[in-house]
Design a protein around this nucleic acid. Structure first.
Lengths: 192, 192
DNA sequence: CCAAACCTACCAACCAGTAGGGAGGCTGTC
DNA sequence: GACAGCCTCCCTACTGGTTGGTAGGTTTGG
C-alpha cells in the first residue's frame, strides 16, 4: 500500500466531487486548481491529460465499489439484507449530500461524447455491478429468501436500472428522500 | 400555428440532437453554426443566451411529449397497451439511433450545474411524466387490467425510474436492445 | 420605410496542454 | 562525508484554440 503522494489523491478526490455534480464537461483543471491549491500545469504532471485523470478516477471508483460490495457481502449474510444495505448506502449519500450520485451512472449518459478509454471503464462498472447483483439474487432465490420474476440476470439489470433512475429522479425533484421512496418498494416486491 | 421562421426551429432541432449526445456542456454555438449554416452571432438573435435556447428547447420537448402521450392515450384504449406503446416508442428511438435518450433524463443528472431556468423545466417534465403514468396505472388498476404493488403514484415513479435507468444501461453497454430487454419484464410484471 | 434576420468583426474569459526551469530529496561513487 | 547526477514535484509563462456574448452595419421582405 502506498500512502504517499497525497497530491494525486487530492486531485482525484476533488475531480470526483466535481464530476459528480455535472459530468465530464462540467469541470476544468482550473476548478481543481482552486480547490486543491495547485497550478493547472502541475495537474498535467500527475495526469497527462483530462481523459487520463478521469480514466484513473473511474478505475479507482470501480475498485472502491467492488471492495465495498465485497465487504458488504461478507459482513451481511442474508441476500435481501445485502440489497437493503446497498440501497441504504446510497440513501445515506443523498442524505449527507456527500456525493449524491454514482459517478458511472452520470458518465453513462455522456458516453457518446466521452473519450473511449473512459467509456470502457464506465461500461465495465455497469457489468461489474450487474454481475454482483445477479449473484446476490441467485443466492437469495436458492435460499428461498427472494422471489424472482425472471432470470437472476434480468432481475439484476432491472434492479440496477431502477436504482440509477431513482438517482435521476432525486436530482430532478431536488428531493433527497425521493431515492429511498422509489427504491424501497423494490425490496418489498422482491422479498419472498 | 406558426409555420414561419424555420431558422429558430432548425437551431432548436439541431441543439436537441446535440444535447441528447452529452448534455448541456457538451455542445457549443459553433457546433450548431456548422450544422445549421448560420453564424454563431445570429443564433443570439433568436436566443439571447445559451440558457434561453435550452430552456425553450426543453419546454418545446415537454410540449411534444405531452402531445404524444395524449395522442397515445386517445388512440389506444387499454392502459397496459398504453405503457407498451410508450416503451415501444423509446425502443424505436434506440433502434433508429435517431435520438436514443430522453432530453430531460440526461439533463436531470446535470441539474447541479444547470441554469435554474432550465432545471425548472426538467423538474416539470419529471412531474408531468410521473403524473401521466400515475393516471394510466390508476385506470389500469380500476379496470383490473393492471396489478399494482403499491400506490399508483409509487408504481409510476418506479416505472419512470426504471425506464430512465434502462436508457443509461443501453448507453453504458453500447447495446440498443438492452433498453427493451430491461423494460419488457416491467410490463409482464405489472400485467394482471 | 420599417423591422426582422443575418452578417462581419470583435471581445474577454476560459480551455487543455506545452516548454522550461527551480527546489528538494535520494542515491551512487570517490 | 562530500559531491554529482538524477528524479519527483511544482512553478511561471505561454500557446493556440474555443467559449458565450456584444456592437454595429447590411440585407431582405412586407
Amino acid at each position: 500500500m502506498n500512502t504517499q503522494s497525497t497530491r494525486a489523491d487530492d486531485i482525484l478526490r476533488c475531480a470526483r466531487s466535481l464530476i459528480v455534480r455535472g459530468g465530464y464537461n462540467s469541470f476544468s483543471y482550473a476548478d481543481i486548481s482552486k480547490v486543491v491549491g495547485i497550478r493547472t500545469a502541475s495537474i498535467h504532471h500527475h495526469f497527462p491529460g483530462k481523459s487520463d485523470l478521469v480514466r484513473v478516477l473511474v478505475a479507482q471508483y470501480r475498485e472502491e465499489a467492488l471492495a465495498g460490495l465485497d465487504r458488504l457481502e461478507q459482513s451481511i449474510p442474508d441476500p435481501l439484507d445485502q440489497l437493503r444495505a446497498y440501497l441504504g448506502y446510497w440513501e445515506g449519500c443523498f442524505a449527507d449530500m456527500a456525493a449524491p450520485f454514482c459517478v458511472c451512472a452520470l458518465l453513462a449518459g455522456e458516453i457518446p461524447v466521452l473519450p473511449e478509454e473512459v467509456a470502457v471503464e464506465v461500461r465495465a462498472h455497469f457489468r461489474q455491478l450487474a454481475d454482483w447483483l445477479t449473484g446476490v439474487l441467485e443466492r437469495g432465490a436458492a435460499q428461498g429468501r427472494l422471489r424472482l420474476s425472471g432470470t437472476a440476470r434480468a432481475d439484476a439489470e432491472m434492479f440496477m436500472a431502477t436504482t440509477h433512475g431513482a438517482m435521476l429522479s432525486a436530482r430532478a425533484y431536488g428531493d433527497a428522500t425521493a431515492f429511498g421512496a422509489i427504491t424501497r418498494p423494490l425490496l418489498e416486491r422482491i422479498a419472498a
